[in-house]
Design a protein around this nucleic acid. Sequence first.
DNA 1: CATTGACCTTCACGTTGCGTAAAGGTGTAA
DNA 2: TTACACCTTTACGCAACGTGAAGGTCAATG
Lengths: 254, 254
Amino acid sequence: MEYTVQKLAQLAGVSARTLRYYDEIDILKPARINSSGYRIYGQAEVDRLQQILFYRELGVDLDSIKNIVTAPSFDGAKALKEHREKLLEKKEQLDILIANVDKTIALTEGRMKMSDKEKFEGFKKKMIDENEKKYGKEIREKYGEDTVEKSNAKVMNMSQEDYEKVTSLEKQVKESLAQAFALGDPASDIAQKAAELHKQWLCFYWNEYSKEAHAGLAQMYVDDERFTAYYDKEQPGTAEFLRDAIHIYTGMKK
Amino acid sequence: MEYTVQKLAQLAGVSARTLRYYDEIDILKPARINSSGYRIYGQAEVDRLQQILFYRELGVDLDSIKNIVTAPSFDGAKALKEHREKLLEKKEQLDILIANVDKTIALTEGRMKMSDKEKFEGFKKKMIDENEKKYGKEIREKYGEDTVEKSNAKVMNMSQEDYEKVTSLEKQVKESLAQAFALGDPASDIAQKAAELHKQWLCFYWNEYSKEAHAGLAQMYVDDERFTAYYDKEQPGTAEFLRDAIHIYTGMKK
DNA sequence: CATTGACCTTCACGTTGCGTAAAGGTGTAA
DNA sequence: TTACACCTTTACGCAACGTGAAGGTCAATG
């Protein structure tokens, strides 16, 4: 049985272009060229194409497939094992990426919740005040800060222990940042300490720390009003100050 | 503070080419061009670059980053969530690929072990015979077929139940294949039944079945002598016959 | 017999995010 | 002045084809 490109393509479920490409890169040559210049494939080529597609399904690149199908002594099993290693590496990379994206999303949402919380703070205070008159202290615990903070931590899937550490760090960052801001120099020791604490705090959210990402997040504190609002609450300009300190800390600015 | 390409590149840890490329695709334009045609970047561009690199670290493509950083109203968090979905899809694809590669390796090794086993069959028989004279029946259980087969199954991480099913299927494939081979027609009902059984057998090893891969494996039975030896043991030509039957079954040949 | 329509052929550009020359202009110090 | 380190634009290369474009071939039909 003999096939033209289209016929073979249809038989194997690939495009004619693919077959021409495989011809071009010397991975599957037609059995012969007829008088009109048409590619003619025979049974041996059909068989070989099956092999190629088999490895292609497993995600092996054409260059490796070429080695496997052209050299008869080539160890296909060994090639597959090496291929497996590459796939595993890719998978790990992806897992890290996904984890970082997840945590960045959680972080943004955590801030958003705080932001929302702050918006309704006045309203809540009134409610609590009114409730307190009626029902006393225990109701404050029900609607108080702690509860909201804890639900945030739950969203971020943290352990209780981690939650305490991260809360403590957050407090430390705020304190040293306030001190440093009073001095006015983002290169000062205390400002750099704030940046260092901020890094430690961040490492609870990210699996892999990089200077670039840290600096990028610091920039986001200035660009995204939700973050700016959070940091500038006590002292306007604090978000920008923190960004400058972090940019110096990460060596992104002199 | 003003920067030339090189300076900014060094500051941010990217190449000058990257900055020119970002200029080209309108993702980061210099603040101005000086009289000699040099690109000059200012503070705003440094900030923007930080943002770009931040999203790049998370694996977002430049086109999406462009949307995020150019449109001030663009929802970065939403974009990240969509990005997360894409990453998850990729991960699933990868997981399937890895599983299939794993099982194909296990399958090849399983065959190799059988092949090796057969090589040493004569030797083992002699040993067992000798041992039997000395120690009786229980030693046969120790070195017998069953144990070896079960260890193969263990390698392939199968449950005992699956192991029994797959062994039964293997036997059925062999039986119907032998019958069909006697008739000599790979398109016959019984040969096609063998191909169907072979597919069922194969589905214990692969997570995703595809006609192309099935046909490719069948071809491998002919190309790889380890497989050929296994199928041709009783009747030479059986591997080729099975391949033809499967190629007809999968619609890869008329 | 000419035309139509379905094939076939060889270029050759587009896709992503830059790396890597090549060819030529600019800035500054010795 | 010359050397050397910058800068510029242009353009090919990478993987695995998709998608035309321009033109030749084949079988059937008016």
